[in-house]
C-alpha cells in the first residue's frame, strides 16, 4: 500500500505544484520515485520529527500541501504536540503518513509498533484519520487527501498487501464516497444463502487486518452464523449514520483494528452507537471491540503471530464473536 500511495502522490504532484513530500529519513526504495521527478519538492528533514512537522506547518501556512512520511509512532507520538499546536490548531493542510500501522514491523519490537496512533490522532480537533485496508483503498485515500484541506493522518500497513474482496466497489466510489462504510462481503450459513434479512453479526474493520475479518466471516458461516463485513477507510470522521443503520439490523457489531481497543475504531463505533441512543434510537446492537488489549506484547513476533496471540486473527475473531453471541 505504501508504494500505491506514493505512486498516486507522485502522479498527482505533476499537476498539483503545491504538493511536497517530506520524509523523516525513512522510505528507502519507496519515496525515490517522487524525489527523482520532483527534487525541488522533496525534503529529507532528517531524524527530527518535531522539526519535520513544524516545517510542514510553515510550508502549509505559505500555501504548500505537504505530506510527511515516516514509520511507526515517530510521526505521531514523537511530535504529538507539534501536530496539535502547529497543524491542527490553525487547521493546516498537512498530511501525516505512517507506515507500519499496528504490528506491521512486528519483530522489530514495541518501539516500532504503531498501536496507539489512531487514538492520539482521533483526539486532535480537526484531524481526519484514514486507514486503508488494501491497495484499492490506498488509492482512494490518496485521492481523498488531494481534495481535503483538513489536517490528515494516513495509517498504512506496509507493502505487498492483496486487494481484498469488494475492492471493485472501492474503485467505483467518488472521492467523498470514501466517508461511508465500504460493504465488503456478506456470508450466510449453507442452506440459507441468498436469504434476505439481518445478519447475526456485522464486522467493521479498518486497515489491512480487514483480511482477517473476511476470513472470519467464512468460519462464522461454517458455524451457522451469518455475517456482514465492512471496512471503514475513514476512522474520523466516521460514518455515524452507516454505523447506526448497521447496528439497527444486526445482533452484534464487532469492530476489528490492529490498534489498542482504547480510542480507535472500536471506541469510535461505540461512541456513534451511544450517541444514537442519546438521540432516541432503540434496538441498536451492542459493540464487541476486538483489538489489542491494554498491554504491550510480552514476546517477539511477526504480524501474523502477534495477531494470533491477541486473538485478532480470523480464528480469534471468530471465537470472540461466537462467545459474544453465546454460540461458542
Amino acid at each position: 500500500m505504501r508504494n500505491t500511495f506514493i505512486a498516486a502522490l507522485t502522479e498527482r504532484a505533476a499537476t498539483d505544484e503545491r504538493i511536497m513530500l517530506l520524509t523523516g529519513d525513512l522510505g528507502f526504495r519507496v519515496v525515490e520515485r517522487f524525489q527523482e521527478r520532483f527534487p525541488g519538492r522533496y525534503l529529507n528533514g532528517g531524524i527530527a520529527e518535531q522539526d519535520l512537522i513544524e516545517v510542514a506547518a510553515g510550508l502549509a501556512l505559505e500555501g504548500y500541501k505537504p505530506f510527511v512520511y515516516s514509520i511507526a509512532s515517530f510521526p505521531t507520538l514523537r511530535c504529538l504536540e507539534q501536530i496539535r499546536n502547529s497543524v491542527c490548531n490553525p487547521e493546516l493542510d498537512v498530511t501525516v503518513i505512517c507506515i507500519g500501522g499496528g504490528f506491521a514491523y512486528g519483530q522489530l519490537g514495541m518501539t516500532h509498533h504503531a498501536t496507539e496512533d489512531m487514538a492520539a490522532m482521533r483526539s486532535m480537533p480537526c484531524m481526519e484519520v484514514l486507514s486503508p485496508a488494501d491497495p484499492a483503498e490506498a488509492r482512494a485515500v490518496a485521492a481523498y487527501c488531494f481534495e481535503s484541506t483538513s489536517p490528515k493522518y494516513v495509517r498504512i500497513n506496509r507493502g505487498g498487501e492483496p486487494e481484498l474482496e469488494g475492492a471493485e466497489r472501492v474503485e467505483g466510489l467518488p472521492v467523498q464516497g470514501l466517508r461511508g462504510l465500504v460493504e465488503r462481503a456478506r456470508r450466510a450459513p449453507a442452506g440459507v444463502e441468498g436469504a434476505a434479512g439481518a445478519a447475526d453479526v456485522a464486522i467493521v474493520a479498518t486497515g489491512a487486518i480487514a483480511k482477517e475479518a473476511l476470513e472470519a466471516a467464512d468460519l462464522l458461516a461454517q458455524a451457522g452464523i451469518s455475517c456482514e463485513v465492512f471496512t471503514a477507510p475513514l476512522v474520523k470522521p466516521l460514518d455515524a449514520e452507516g454505523i447506526r443503520a448497521v447496528a439497527a439490523r444486526t445482533k452484534l457489531v464487532a469492530t476489528l483494528e490492529e490498534h489498542t481497543v482504547i480510542g480507535g475504531l472500536g471506541s469510535a463505533v461505540a461512541e456513534a452507537i451511544e450517541d444514537a441512543r442519546v438521540d432516541g434510537a432503540h434496538g441498536l446492537a451492542p459493540v464487541l471491540r476486538i483489538g489489542i488489549p491494554d498491554r504491550f506484547p510480552d514476546v517477539v513476533g511477526d504480524q501474523r503471530y502477534l495477531r494470533q496471540r491477541f486473538s485478532m486473527d480470523a480464528e480469534g475473531v471468530t471465537r470472540r464473536i461466537r462467545e459474544a453471541l453465546g454460540r461458542a
Partner: peptide, 17 residues
C-alpha cells in the same frame, strides 16, 4: 521550542518561491 521549526518552513517556502 515550536516556533523556530515553523519559521524554517516559512523560510523554505520563501526560497522555493
Amino acid at each position: 521550542g515550536q516556533g523556530l521549526g515553523v519559521a524554517c518552513g516559512i523560510a523554505l517556502a520563501a526560497r522555493l518561491r
